[in-house]
Design a protein around this nucleic acid. Structure first.
Lengths: 243, 243
DNA sequence: AAACATTAAAACATCTGATGTTTTAATATT
DNA sequence: AATATTAAAACATCAGATGTTTTAATGTTT
């Protein structure tokens, strides 16, 4: 009838109280909590329990504890890296197939490119061009930078100035890299990626939404096919095969 | 030149070691770590530090610690709730506008409905119909259930059998509810939502992808406009106005 | 006055060991 | 066979001692 109340720990209780206070707006980023000793007395718990709660809140990205005379426990905004890491952890266990990644990317990325082409600014184009220049250097030296690849897609997502789109693209790209690293693409693959990126960039530069969407769709499909080709089609890229 | 190495804590060190072992596949869900005392000796740290690491790993959803004779610290899969909570925390601070939510939903949800209409099974339709029946009861009693609303969209996303799509829709809906709750929609709004859901259901039942996408698009836009109408157009739904 | 070095205190980090609580496997009883 | 009891494994919590980091305040030099 009722959910089993899973945690009955003091630390968990404190975590919930502080998280709720943050979500209610009572505790705002930058706010410094009282010193350990004092706060422990407030809560009526030992220092050890309070510290366990602090570690959990830090893991959630809601708190930062610093040593030193003007240190202490500070409320902070959850940053992108924390959110992304958690998503990547979750996706790791879900172990989605290339097909699933590609299906979602086909929905998202062409539409995002379309939006981006309609409002991209010159300095944003310049930043993407710089990305392509670096990618070209990597390519010519026979290597492939996952970071640059992620960065290309992230920059396009950023043009929308939509924090939700930013989070989704950033997280999906990060999770996808873990698969790509298992596969270790060859030169031919890297070349295709580079050329596709250039075509997408050209579409953005000419502020052509349809073209930008079309080229991104082609790119995402090509990458999906390319990655699938490297995998066992029946059990695509299962990490259980690593051992 | 270098990133400041933020954490130098023993507990953080242990968290990273265990997380890496999980991501490497060396520690799998269900695995029980040695007892506190023994593991603390292994790591060469005190029990207190080890316990702080455990609390952080629990917050990340990677560990579950149970008391009792056959208890201990067990590796576990990150569950949806943990991932969702973290995303909701992040989005809370980003405080995206209704416009941003709607922009992403317009990209995602019609496309997902299209996919769903092409492969929906009878029992999935029955489950959605049941959702609508419950929503009708709520509506007739003059109330509105956010849970049922989320559930409707989640069920459609589930039809795709894509865990990434599932995560994204689930998280976005959960984050959006926090905004809706601030607004407290009136009867007219609830009625519109219900009718839109019925139209989407009809499209799914007739296995009509285009129609399903079209109705979902109309619904998402309608909700976006409806929510915006309730908000200050210059500063949409900023939680700073709660006080 | 500005730049630099020193110092001391605030606040967290870690360890140790004692005591309490929960859970369940094993045992005993009916 | 079902039920009740018990004991031990393993975590939960606490108290207090000691160590380390950080920086504001102070002092010194140029």
């Amino acid at each position: 009838m009722f959910k089993t109340a899973k945690f009955n720990r003091i630390s968990q209780n404190i975590v919930q109280q502080i998280r709720q206070a943050i979500l209610k707006g009572d505790l705002q980023p930058g706010h410094r909590l009282p010193p350990e000793k004092e706060l422990a007395e407030n809560f009526g718990v030992s220092k050890a329990s309070l510290r366990e709660a602090f570690r959990a809140l830090e893991a959630l990205g809601l708190l930062e504890v610093r040593q030193g005379v003007s240190g202490g426990a500070f409320i902070c905004e959850v940053d992108l890296e924390t959110a992304r890491n958690n998503i990547v952890n979750y996706i790791f266990f879900q172990n989605p197939s290339i097909r699933e990644f590609t299906q979602l990317r086909i929905i998202l990325e062409p539409a995002i490119s379309r939006l981006a082409a309609a409002k991209v600014k010159d300095e944003q184009l310049a930043a993407i061009e710089e990305n392509l220049n670096e990618a070209k250097i990597e390519l010519d030296s026979g290597s492939f930078s996952y970071e640059l690849d992620i960065d290309f897609h992230r920059r396009i997502a950023d043009i929308t100035e939509n924090s939700l789109i930013h989070l989704v693209i950033d997280s999906m790209q990060s999770a996808l890299v873990n698969i790509k690293k298992l596969i270790d693409p060859d030169y031919d693959f890297s070349l295709k990626v580079y050329h596709a990126h250039v075509r997408i960039f050209d579409a953005l530069r000419s502020r052509n939404p349809d073209k930008a969407a079309e080229e991104m769709l082609r790119h995402v499909k090509e990458v999906g096919d390319g990655l699938t080709a490297f995998c066992d089609p029946k059990n695509p890229c299962a990490p259980s095969e690593k051992n």
